[in-house]
Design a binder for these strands. Sequence first.
DNA 1: ACCTGAACACCGTTCAAGT
DNA 2: ACCTGAACACCGTTCAAGT
Lengths: 207, 207
Amino acid sequence: MGRPPHPLIVRERVLATALELIGRDGIDHFSMRVLARTLGVSAASLYHHFRDKDEILDGAAALALELSRRPAPPAHASPEDEIVTIVVDALGALRAHPEILPVLVRRADREFAVVVHGHMAELLQRSGVPEAMIVPWLDILDGLLIGVAVLDVHTTVDYDVDADSYPILHRSLVAGDADLDAAERVEIAVRALLARARELERAPDPA
Amino acid sequence: MGRPPHPLIVRERVLATALELIGRDGIDHFSMRVLARTLGVSAASLYHHFRDKDEILDGAAALALELSRRPAPPAHASPEDEIVTIVVDALGALRAHPEILPVLVRRADREFAVVVHGHMAELLQRSGVPEAMIVPWLDILDGLLIGVAVLDVHTTVDYDVDADSYPILHRSLVAGDADLDAAERVEIAVRALLARARELERAPDPA
DNA sequence: ACCTGAACACCGTTCAAGT
DNA sequence: ACCTGAACACCGTTCAAGT
């Protein structure tokens, strides 16, 4: 066909289409050929705009996070409440695009988090965390967030536990209020971590 | 060639070879054909022993966890110390096979954890966690473990932070003792969570 | 510069055929 | 029962050729 008067391929449209296809049909059905067909172009053309398939996957993952970002974090009374809000919002963003999570995990590009990290670093300091420990606590909070999201997305079935072999686990599983929502669990965990982060002056040496 | 006098394919040997190949060449280079060639059989034969490729990946992931399991968890004075040991050991297991982590995350088959969960449920109870909250705390600890492992495996570069835009984050990053080992971070976090888990009688209602 | 069809070197999986 | 070669319907990526 040759070169059209206006470019047929726009980067953002490609990424939005990729995200939509992945969300609708799953990551296993996503291919360059399917994406190209949906866009009405040839698969080869995509390589004029993206280095490879991974660049498209990364872009779609970044777009997913961007789309589910809350417009503005509300200013709360305490920095703790604000941190909880940020983490719970981020969990919601990850849960809104479960199919993109494996991509995020596989690449774990943390650049996207730098803005929210800058803000959270300030909040941690205001809540009394010593400066040298701010980055470790950010890492812990990040890890908690990602891990809870990963487990939550795959919550397929409540696994069966033999009552005789594991009596306590079994009783806790059948207890009614045992299954909190992931957002509630993450809030409990974040508050627990922050309560301790304020107390610690420094990491304890392995004595 | 036809049927040999003794089976050429043994399930455990297939999984061990798969794990080795994935660890050595990466998950992207792992294919049924490569696995079959390494084993000296045809790719088609593998389908007589495994339903599909996913079953092999799951088996290899389970094997990785099994291999890195410590022989016996030492009986400590306090249940808290024992929980920390279990979680830190599990982190070591995950870090020993970084290439298998995406497989675990993608499938998140939690059945493999039931034994250690049964034990940890008992430890949580002994450390004073109310029965109805044991499963939520197990979920939180699982999430923390997986998330920290995921982030640790991909710790490619310390990202650059603009000192003017994010002064606190920047200062914390350049502070010398800011980068604790993942095992140290997870220990700090687990102790913080346990300290709080003992106090809480019940999940706080969203008031 | 931008897009194309065709080709290359792969995939996972199935299946009739062999012993 | 267990293994095989060949085939099917796909992949990601490259590249000469078109305008």
